[in-house]
């Protein structure tokens, strides 16, 4: 019984983690940048949901939708401010890594000024109060809702990438920016768009993270970034479809440990990340990536 619970809960967590990580993977694929501020965008999404519910009693699902244009705009602006300077550096990969670390610190500090350092949480009825009974097990309704809400967002992203012209251009830039530019694709525009979409996905995931993570606080960002990185590494860097697999593997491993060796649960994301990086740096679905 505990095994079944852990497995199904792992799948539910996994869908959420896939949404939480997919933006990081998109941005990595197009810009070859590990966006260390990714987790901080998730935290900001949580605060958005918290404020909208506490002030206007708006359901968290609504916040997840509002998060999309807001995150998109924020990502767009950030990209246009930073991008012109990134390309000039001697070691752009490392430079941008450190740069985004600085941005992460700024977001965290501003979030602390704005919302205080205490953990904030919401009661389940901010999303859905009723728990789900399945096969004699009771699953928190908020967990089920977070997982279910992640599916259409991930699906929309998949359709965008594989069924639209902009998506095809995005995949071309992922494969080879120079050649993409040579066939007339505006690489800067695609990059800005991708950065916006990646940020939007993170902010939207934040609306659910406040339940899945049991609350939110400004200092959570680094841990969320690490988890998201573990997820995309498992599923292969730059492979967006792989993120879902990565999320599921991570979610199930996490729930298994939480169920059968709860005091070691903290170790799981880090151990998985290290093992995958050392044993199979290209991820479970990966071909060898360039530059990686």
């Amino acid at each position: 019984m505990r095994l079944e619970y852990a497995l199904l809960a792992g799948v539910l967590y996994g869908m959420f983690y896939a949404l939480a990580a997919v933006g990081l993977n998109l941005v990595f694929g197009v810009l070859r940048v590990v966006n260390l501020a990714h987790g901080d965008w998730i935290v900001l999404g949580s605060f958005l949901a918290w404020e909208l519910y506490s002030t206007f009693h708006l359901n968290v699902l609504f916040s997840a939708v509002v998060a999309l244009p807001l995150g998109m705009a924020a990502g767009f602006i950030l990209y246009w401010v930073l991008a012109p300077r990134l390309g000039r550096s001697e070691d752009p990969e490392m430079t941008s890594f450190v740069l985004f670390f600085g941005i992460s610190q700024i977001i965290e500090a501003l979030a602390t000024f704005g919302f205080g350092n205490n953990q904030r949480s919401l009661l389940p009825n901010a999303l859905v109060a009723a728990p789900l009974r399945l096969g004699g097990q009771v699953y928190p309704g908020v967990l089920v809702a977070s997982a279910v809400a992640s599916v259409p967002l991930l699906l929309a992203l998949y359709l965008y990438l594989y069924r639209s012209h902009a998506g095809a251009a995005t995949r071309a830039v992922m494969a080879n920016p120079a050649e993409a530019a040579a066939v007339g694709i505006n690489v800067r525009k695609i990059s800005a768009l991708t950065f916006g979409i990646g940020t939007a996905a993170a902010v939207a995931a934040g609306a659910f993270s406040i339940f899945v993570e049991g609350g939110t606080s400004p200092s959570q960002g680094v841990a969320l970034t690490t988890v998201a990185f573990a997820v995309i590494v498992i599923g292969s860097l730059g492979n967006v479809a792989g993120t879902v697999l990565g999320g599921l593997v991570y979610g199930i491993a996490d729930q298994m440990t939480a169920t059968f060796a709860s005091s070691w649960a903290n170790l799981v994301p880090y151990l998985i990340l290290i093992l995958v990086m050392l044993a199979r740096p290209s991820g479970l679905l990966g071909r060898a990536t360039r530059d990686a």
Partner: peptide, 23 residues
């Protein structure tokens, strides 16, 4: 073995290693 990794991959994996030791 972490030294096989480069750039950001090394940086993040070393972070994970420190967190694992802490855990």
């Amino acid at each position: 073995p972490l030294l096989r990794l480069a750039g950001p991959y090394f940086a993040i994996t070393s972070l994970a290693a420190a967190e694992a030791i802490y855990a």
